[in-house]
Design a protein around this nucleic acid. Structure first.
Lengths: 138, 138
DNA sequence: TTACAAATCGTAATCATTTCGATTGCGCGG
DNA sequence: CCGCGCAATCGAAATGATTACGATTTGTAA
């Protein structure tokens, strides 16, 4: 997803265009990988030293609810990234060093014949972890 | 895994048989589901009101390293359960209400033709979430 | 420009987890 | 059976991520 689409979604939901939201979204647009709330805070503080955690977490949660960002849990911390292709279900390879991702288009739920009668399936998680070519090289 | 096997592993690694370890392992042997450190603490404190988090977390980590327990992250908290069948790779359906699990013997890594040249795959996670028959009924 | 609600700030509270010095107790040798 | 050495534990405080909140600022629409 690009910045324009993100702002269209925000506008559609009557959310205001604020400086903080602009900076946060630009940061994700420029960084195609999973990032933490601290990463976002560190980046923003280069220019605006007075951003509060309230603002960061609230916006990250809002963006995730609207499908602008996607979220996962890595080593005990929430990580966020720009939602690659909203509407198209996919999974990720995730680099454990830099957080960069690579799409895995196939979904195990389509391939496995999971038979769970009387169970109610609500969600699933499939992620592959390792090192990306860039991190292996350096 | 049963208690006897667990103690064999501990003995093999020269770890002492303490009251706390006995209680923790019995708790997991009797509860076939994913549980948090707090769950363990609450249970132990019914009889021994003086157990420290140090002891709980240290033992849970030790047991996990030895393959006695398996661990996963659910809603931001570490969860542990007795390792079902050590040596046999498997995945889980996990009830989001009570933590009970059901084995999924197939592994998506065997079925998907994941082609990641120059990437180094180290691990993967596949979990299915929902409600178990027991929780649906009640 | 004004008004109002949304958004933010600054900071404190909360929650899970980790750490540490002091103490206890398991298991071995005598 | 006793005592020693070290693993294990205790008690409590520190840490790190996340959430909460009253006071203030800012975006937007009239």
């Amino acid at each position: 997803m690009n910045l324009k689409e993100a702002w269209q979604i925000l506008q559609k939901n009557e959310l205001k265009r604020t400086k903080n939201r602009e900076v946060i979204l630009e940061f994700f647009a420029d960084n195609d990988r999973y990032l933490t709330a601290s990463d976002v805070k560190d980046f923003i503080e280069e220019n605006n030293p007075n951003i509060s955690f309230d603002t960061i977490y609230r916006n990250l949660s809002t963006f995730t609810e609207l499908g602008i960002l996607e979220e996962t849990e890595l080593t005990g911390e929430r990580h966020f990234r720009m939602h690659c292709d909203p509407g198209v279900h996919h999974h990720h390879f995730i680099c454990t060093l830099c957080g960069i991702t690579k799409n895995i288009p196939q979904c195990p739920m389509d391939l496995l014949s999971i038979n769970l009668p009387n169970y109610e399936i609500e969600a699933h998680k499939f992620e592959v972890y390792g090192k990306c070519p860039g991190c292996i090289a350096s």
